[in-house]
Structures are given as structure tokens and as C-alpha cells.
């Protein structure tokens, strides 16, 4: 397992896009947060400062999707699977690395956002970091199933942004509540954890039974 982790870490850390994406997570989260904090007066300061997570999560999704779909695009996946015949171990290593990377980057991004907006660090900050990690896992699982970069990104951004756009069109309060509670972005960490778990399990199953 150490060998798999090390090889995955080598891939992630040497791929030229990674540092830019991590920088983009911090820049977009902090930038939008600072902009929102500057324009919105009153209300929940912490909540306003964390507006940037709305954009930052999109970059986290790219990072997570590329981690696996990038390998399918270049054919690298066949080499990876030849080197690690236990396919779930490969996925687990990717998940572990992704989670820790996103946790560190997310903590930096959210810490900076709160600092810029002069908002206190509360439990909401910790929850936001956890949110980004779970979102990354959901994206990784989904991308393992879909395999195509563009389609995975479209699917993930649809999951993120569509439910709140559809909500106003639905007037039946029961349906509204269901959608709000079941959508990964608005249902709370518990719901998101179930989404991430389901996506990762489905990803593990499809990775194991399909040809690469």
C-alpha cells in the first residue's frame, strides 16, 4: 500500500496542472469571499466570507476528476493497473491522497477567506473543509464511473449547481424539501457523505469489473 501511495503521490505532485489547480482553489475561494464580504454588509459575516466555496468547489471538482479521468485520457490507466493489479487499492490510494491534499488546500483557502473578511474562525470553517473533501471524493467516484473528463465535469457541476436553480420552479413544498435535503450541495454534510460513499463504491465496483 505504501508503494501505491508513493507512486500516486509522485503522479499527483509532478503533473504540471496540480500546483495551478491548488492555487486556483485558494485564489477563487478567497477572491469571491473577499468580494462578497466587501459588497455585503450585515448578515452572517462567516457565511458571507465563505461564499467563495461556491466557486472553489468547482476547482476542487476539476482536480478530483482529472486525478482519474486524466489517466483514462492518456492511457496511463493501463500502466497504473498493470503495476497495481489490486484495483481497489489504486482507487483507495487516490482517494487518500486527494482527501489530504484537498483538506490542506481547503483549510488554507478557508482560513485566508476568513482572515481577509475579518470573520472569526468557527465550526463552520471546519465544516467547509470537510465539505470540500467529501465533494472531492464524490467527484473522484463519479469520474471513475464516467471516465470521460468533460462528461464527468458536466455531471459534477450539474449536481452542484442545478438543484438550487430548479428549486424556484417547484412550488410543491414537499418536493422542494426533498430536493433540498437530497442534493449534495445543500443537504448538509451527512447527505454529502452518503453521496461520496455511494459514488466511491460504485467507482470501485466499475473499476474492478470493467476493462480499462
Amino acid at each position: 500500500m505504501t508503494a501505491v501511495l508513493r507512486s500516486e503521490w509522485r503522479k499527483l505532485s509532478t503533473s504540471p496542472g496540480t500546483p495551478w489547480l491548488l492555487l486556483a482553489v485558494i485564489a477563487s475561494t478567497t477572491g469571491v469571499g473577499a468580494l462578497a464580504a466587501a459588497t455585503v454588509s450585515g448578515g452572517d459575516r462567516v457565511k458571507t466570507a465563505l461564499t467563495g466555496v461556491q466557486l472553489g468547489q468547482a476547482v476542487v471538482v476539476i482536480l478530483a476528476v482529472l486525478l482519474i479521468s486524466g489517466e483514462y485520457a492518456t492511457g496511463m490507466i493501463r500502466v497504473s493497473l498493470a503495476a497495481t493489479p489490486r484495483r481497489t487499492a489504486l482507487l483507495a490510494a487516490k482517494a487518500a491522497l486527494l482527501t489530504s491534499t484537498v483538506a490542506v488546500t481547503g483549510a488554507l483557502a478557508i482560513g485566508t477567506s476568513l482572515l481577509v473578511a475579518h470573520a472569526p474562525v468557527t465550526a463552520a470553517a471546519l465544516r467547509s473543509v470537510l465539505y470540500l473533501c467529501l465533494m472531492a471524493l464524490l467527484a473522484l467516484g463519479a469520474s471513475t464511473v464516467v471516465r470521460e473528463t468533460g462528461a464527468s465535469i458536466g455531471l459534477m457541476l450539474g449536481l452542484l449547481y442545478l438543484p438550487p436553480l430548479l428549486l424556484p420552479a417547484i412550488t410543491d413544498p414537499a418536493w422542494k424539501r426533498h430536493i433540498q435535503h437530497l442534493a449534495p450541495a445543500s443537504g448538509g454534510l451527512g447527505t454529502l457523505a452518503w453521496w461520496a460513499l455511494a459514488a466511491m463504491l460504485l467507482g470501485a465496483v466499475t473499476l474492478s469489473i470493467r476493462d480499462a
Binding site: 461556491q54 468547482a58 476547482v59 476539476i62 465535469i153 457541476l157
Partner: peptide
């Protein structure tokens, strides 16, 4: 694909959502 799809969606959908 990744960056292009994200940029396009974020440019059109996110402003409306925000």
C-alpha cells in the same frame, strides 16, 4: 476538456446562481 468545460459552465451558470 476539464478546464474548458468548467470555465464555460462557471461563466454562464455561476453568475446567475450567485
Amino acid at each position: 476538456s476539464a478546464a474548458a468545460v468548467t470555465t464555460a459552465i462557471v461563466a454562464i451558470v455561476l453568475p446567475y446562481l450567485l
